[in-house]
């Protein structure tokens, strides 16, 4: 698993779920995120972590407008933006976990929670430049994640 693999998964969700098209530019964190949502997860052997998804104003509004199928020029409501970003976070988290740990383990994802926008931090922080704005993802997990990685690397049939 590389950062590129994760970015590909994130970009795929953005494009296919919310019609957010990557701009091709190198992603850089904006001065301030507009909305941030975290999805906490727990997995095998007591492992746990969270995936934080942040959007700037342009990306957040575009996500809601596209999920709602609004005509150009029509702005989504504030609650619609929150709900849209929650769902985008949920789908990004669901698609990132198998990239990170493979498809042989079961993970429970908690419902997305909105958190106060802050600088993204974690063992992996990725930014994706979109035509409509910027999306950032922080992958945070405690040391227990190494247990999943170890399990994933075990030969078939010997996993706990």
């Amino acid at each position: 698993m590389s950062d590129d693999d994760c970015l590909m998964a994130i970009a795929g969700v953005c494009e296919h779920l919310a019609f957010l098209i990557p701009s091709g530019d190198e992603g850089a964190a904006p001065e301030a995120w507009s909305i941030q949502t975290q999805v906490r997860w727990c997995g095998p052997d007591g492992s746990r972590g969270r995936i934080v998804v942040a959007l700037d104003q342009g990306a957040a509004v575009a996500t809601a407008a596209n999920l709602l199928g609004l005509p150009p020029g029509q702005a989504p409501g504030e609650q619609d933006v929150r709900d849209a970003c929650s769902e985008l976070s949920n789908v990004i988290a669901g698609n990132l976990l198998p990239v990170l740990y493979g498809q042989d383990h079961e993970f429970h994802l908690c419902p997305p929670e909105e958190v106060a926008p802050a600088r993204l931090s974690g063992r992996t922080v990725l930014c994706l430049a979109l035509l409509d704005g910027t999306l950032g993802v922080a992958i945070q997990g405690d040391a227990d994640n190494s247990r999943i990685l170890k399990a994933v690397r075990l030969p078939t049939g010997s996993a706990p």
Binding site: N90, A93, G94, L97, P98, D104, E106, L109
Partner: peptide, 8 residues
């Protein structure tokens, strides 16, 4: 669903 776990 976003579910990817093959056992589930």
């Amino acid at each position: 669903s976003t579910e990817s776990s093959q056992p589930r």
